[in-house]
Write a protein that binds this DNA or RNA. Sequence first.
DNA 1: CACCGTACCTTACCGGGAGTAAGTTCGAGT
DNA 2: ACTCGAACTTACTCCCGGTAAGGTACGGTG
Lengths: 193, 193
Amino acid sequence: MRVPRAEREQQMLAAAEAVFAERGFRAASMEEIAARVGVTKPMLYEYFGSKDGLLVACIARASAELFARTGRAHADARDPEHRVRDGVRVFFDFIAGHGAAWSVLRSESALGTGPAADAVERLRRQQSDQLAAVLREHPPLAGRPPTSLAAYAAVVVGACERLAARQGTARALSPAEATDVVMETVWTGLGSA
Amino acid sequence: MRVPRAEREQQMLAAAEAVFAERGFRAASMEEIAARVGVTKPMLYEYFGSKDGLLVACIARASAELFARTGRAHADARDPEHRVRDGVRVFFDFIAGHGAAWSVLRSESALGTGPAADAVERLRRQQSDQLAAVLREHPPLAGRPPTSLAAYAAVVVGACERLAARQGTARALSPAEATDVVMETVWTGLGSA
DNA sequence: CACCGTACCTTACCGGGAGTAAGTTCGAGT
DNA sequence: ACTCGAACTTACTCCCGGTAAGGTACGGTG
């Protein structure tokens, strides 16, 4: 059956996300992704250019989703502390709900260096910048130079990621617990920095 | 020229580390690594079993090196705060000096799931446990359950990693600056947790 | 010294998956 | 109804991880 491009692309992204999550990026074959959509390989190349391109597109989609959610959380919260807390909470909820998408997002280093890796790094920056902007509103940090804020944001993001990566390995923390741990360790420090 | 196994293995690990760092794990070819050592492919398979095996061996070596250094730093420092600070500092110095080794170490997710990934995860845990042990000696955290200490350790490790990953992307922080940022944000929080 | 076993090393191959060239069919717009 | 482009396929190539089978130097033993 013939299907318009926009729709096909979404099907492909969904299938790719699933297969990448099941088999891991390396073991996933373009053949299987195509088959799952009911199409053949060259279509994937027509629309996404390469296997890396497909991965990047998956990451971009998941990342946009996460970005939108944290953005909404920030907008709804009433002060910087709650903005950070709620944003972190949304992150852990997102992981809990979309384990597959997340494991794809984390495949960053599967693409070594190159344009694809750069694209991922840009998305990552977007997320960090969003957080840095929130931190700037926090009185104790108000006067800090952007570089400094970016570094603090990086610390928070790193803490979240590493904690999230532990899910499935060690005894998992609930989203609520994980959020508490991050805020306990990091927020107090940011206040007195 | 014929060379004994132990020595050859070291040559191979050095070459692999370099090629993985230059090209990225996926783009690196066993052929090139072998050629750089002055040997042919089957030797690599004889000694390391597979491409993943070779990566794991590289990671194990770099990881052992880092582990030894942080261990030494912990032993030399006089109280928990300095143990953590010096350990973090050693980490950033390690990155600054061994960029190649680090980029290999970070390839964790290049190997999806499977026994190889498990091996890497064990090494990672080793590092986290070392830090958790130091944290246990910090009075405010003395009574905490191991799970909790492990989570705090994960936060610190994540913060360090993410900050390290920014080197080369944004304006880089010096090891000293990076250490200060981590301690400022995280240590204060750990004291009052 | 001559022999032999072992460890180091090679050549020559296979299979599979990424990526592509060229051609086919459906369907929307005039 | 005819065209023209977008959606789609078949049928390849090439590269690379991995392997089978065999060759060659070197230490030990009679």
